[in-house]
């Protein structure tokens, strides 16, 4: 099934249609067909290699984009889901558990969006409540107890801005994770799969290796939110997306992430298996690297990495 096209993909689609037309009308004209195929390929590469930040945000939010559980299914085995924060409830926007990847046993913590209305009611559009962050911390403690590395899959528009979330102190649940993750005595790997929505993403994102998919974004505020405040209208989201420097390449340049995981041309939704293979490879590579480090080095380097973040003059 071809995924739903985005606005900026229209010219590509039209050319594809022309090519199909040509093939069905004059299948014997192999010369013209091959010329057109070549043109189409060039156009495809040109379009996807030069995506604007806003176009990447759209890909990161594409309704067919593989979500955390899709990667779980393709990269991990023996997954046992562990529910609940032992306090108030179980946050379905943040499924988590123990599993195996390659030869490694691990704890896996995910942010999961829904594919349709019913799923989104369950998953709350991938916006966790405080219970999600507290469950995450509970499982990180479990990881520490059994010396298992922690892997987190980040994909959230942001922590949930609701009445219940505030009453149960969503800010505190995130802040405590920021503090506790810094000292957690096992390796932590985070992968931003799609949306890295501000504190909601960072709340499971303090890690030794922060990886980002090629078309994912990581931002202090959504482009729409930023546009509404600074441009006074959400329609300026594309400008805000550019100004915020939120792409994987921008974050690499700012030295805020440690690696970019390549996606299939056009985005992970064009070939989920290929995307998952790249994610699996990147995780295993990171695990191999991190397991060689002594615990004091691991913790010192984690601290030093975040300590260096920030640009100022004095």
């Amino acid at each position: 099934m071809t995924p739903l096209p985005l606005d900026f993909e229209q010219p590509l689609l039209e050319l594809e249609k022309c090519l199909d037309d040509l093939i069905s009308r004059t299948p014997e004209d192999t010369h013209r067909i091959s010329v057109m195929q070549e043109k189409l390929e060039l156009m495809r590469v040109d379009l996807y290699k030069n995506l604007t930040p806003w176009q990447r945000v759209q890909i990161a939010r594409h309704p067919s984009r593989p979500y955390a559980l899709d990667y779980l299914e393709r990269c991990f085995t023996d997954f046992v889901e562990l529910h609940g924060d032992r306090c108030f409830g179980d946050d379905k926007a943040m499924p988590a558990g123990i599993a195996r990847i390659g030869k490694y046993r691990c704890v896996i913590i995910m942010q999961q969006k829904g594919r349709n209305v019913k799923e989104n009611v369950l998953r709350n559009f991938g916006s966790p409540h405080p219970e999600g962050y507290r469950k995450a911390l509970r499982l990180m403690r479990l990881a520490e107890k059994f010396s298992l590395p922690v892997i987190t899959f980040i994909d959230t528009p942001g922590a949930y801005p609701g009445i219940g979330a505030e009453e149960r102190h969503i800010a505190e649940s995130i802040a405590v994770n920021l503090r506790e993750m810094m000292l957690l005595k096992v390796p932590i790997i985070s992968v931003i799969l799609g949306e890295g929505g501000s504190g909601g993403a960072l709340g499971i994102g303090v890690s030794d290796k922060s990886l980002m998919l090629e078309n994912a974004y990581y931002s202090v505020i959504s482009p729409e939110g930023c546009a509404a405040i600074l441009w006074k209208h959400r329609k300026h989201a594309p400008e805000a997306a550019a100004a915020l420097k939120l792409t994987a390449q921008d974050l690499t340049d700012l030295k805020l992430i440690d690696g970019i995981v390549p996606e299939p041309l056009g985005g992970a939704h064009h070939n989920a298996s290929m995307a998952a293979t790249a994610v699996r490879h990147a995780i295993i590579e990171a695990l191999e690297e991190l397991e060689k480090k002594s615990l004091p080095d691991l913790l010192e380097e984690r601290y030093a990495k975040f300590r260096k973040m920030g640009i100022f003059s004095e």
């Binding site: 503090r179 504190g199 303090v206 931002s219 202090v220 915020l244 939120l246 974050l251 973040m309």
Partner: peptide, 24 residues
């Protein structure tokens, strides 16, 4: 967080909380 500094601002949350972790 300060929007004008994008993700750099976001990371200040981790940086300050990390320093508090050691203080604690």
């Amino acid at each position: 967080a300060r929007m004008y500094e994008g993700a750099l601002s976001l990371m200040q949350m981790a940086k300050t909380s990390g320093a508090l972790a050691r203080h604690s």
